[in-house]
Simulated scan of single mutants.
Amino acid sequence: MINYYGNLCTKMYEILHPYVEEEELQFYLSYAKQNKKILEPLCGSGRFVVPFYEKGFDITGFDMSEEMLKELYKKVPNVKSFKSSMENYQPKEKYDYIFITSGSFSLFLDEKNVENLLIKMKQSLNEGGNFVFAVETTANVVYDKQNYFENNSVKTEEGYDLVFKSKSFYDEKNKILSTPSIYELYDENNLLAKEEMDFRLKLYDFGELDELIFKAGFKKINVFSDFNKSNNLNKNSKMFLYDCYI
């Protein structure tokens, strides 16, 4: 399962990331305005949708993971959201602000898919709206780890042990970092469930996306290397934050 959050993966995600870091939240909130429509594609279990909703913003989210959306509905049953992949998403409404967080933009691996994503986001924006997103950079390269190693182990609410193992490979030509992963659920030494995932990220160098962004119809780009929007752009940052206007 490539770039999909399944049941065990979602469980671990919820345990390790119950809340968004305040600095990151404030960065995305800084673009939001009351009485303006907001869209969060790839919203997952609602780390951002929930605090936006609780602050009274008109926000809609969508995600392809049914498991993630179930967690979202547990937190906010009446939240506006729907199930869709980015490939199947067809712009029907217009929004004033769209954002994709946590480097999820990097889950789209080839240039054509990235171009289509950017075009859909532009088509979904009202005039004067902006699209804000983060990408992982080539500073995140991990040297190949051929064998599975344990990254994390957590306790579930039922008292079971949930273990995450992974290995990694880097395709230097295409700048794609692959992380085949295994999630295992144990009751002491008894294996209850197992889930295999394969996460792949497209890593970017500084300026690599600019041409595609303008080609999609955006008129202006601001790029930051941290959530403080500092003027001193660090081209070796592990993250680039794009603020795109139409």
Rank of each mutant, 00 (worst) to 15 (best):
A134C: 03
K167W: 00
D210E: 15
Q146I: 06
D198K: 09
N147R: 15
F131I: 13
V135W: 08
L209Y: 14
N152T: 07
L201A: 02
K167V: 03
S168R: 04
K167D: 00
L201F: 13
K202Y: 11
V135M: 01
G128P: 07
A139R: 11
Q146R: 12
T137C: 04
L201C: 05
V142C: 06
K194Y: 13
V154Q: 12
Y143W: 02
K165V: 00
Y204Q: 05
D187T: 05
N126F: 12
L191P: 14
V132M: 11
K167L: 07
L212F: 07
D144T: 15
E127M: 04
F214Y: 15
V132I: 15
K167H: 05
E195R: 00
L162N: 01
L203I: 01
V154K: 12
G128N: 01
L212M: 14
A139T: 11
G129C: 10
R200I: 00
V163Y: 03
D144L: 06
P180Y: 11
F169V: 12
D205Q: 07
K215A: 03
T179A: 08
E184D: 02
V141S: 09
E208W: 13
S178E: 15
T179W: 15
L203G: 02
S168K: 06
V132Q: 00
V135T: 11
Y170G: 04
F199D: 07
E196P: 00
P180E: 04
E211Y: 14
K194C: 11
K194S: 10
A193C: 00
E184F: 00
F169C: 11
T156R: 09
Y186T: 08
M197Q: 13
S153L: 03
D187V: 06
A134N: 04
Y204V: 10
L203S: 01
V163S: 01
N152D: 12
E150T: 13
T137A: 03
E196Y: 11
L177Q: 14
R200D: 03
F169A: 09
S178Q: 13
S153R: 14
Y160V: 09
D205N: 15
L203N: 05
L185K: 09
Y170N: 08
K173D: 11
L177N: 04
N189I: 15
L177I: 07
E211P: 04
Y160D: 11
D171R: 10
L162K: 08
F164C: 08
G129V: 05
S153M: 12
L209F: 08
L185C: 09
L209V: 07
S168V: 12
K173W: 03
V141Y: 07
N174G: 05
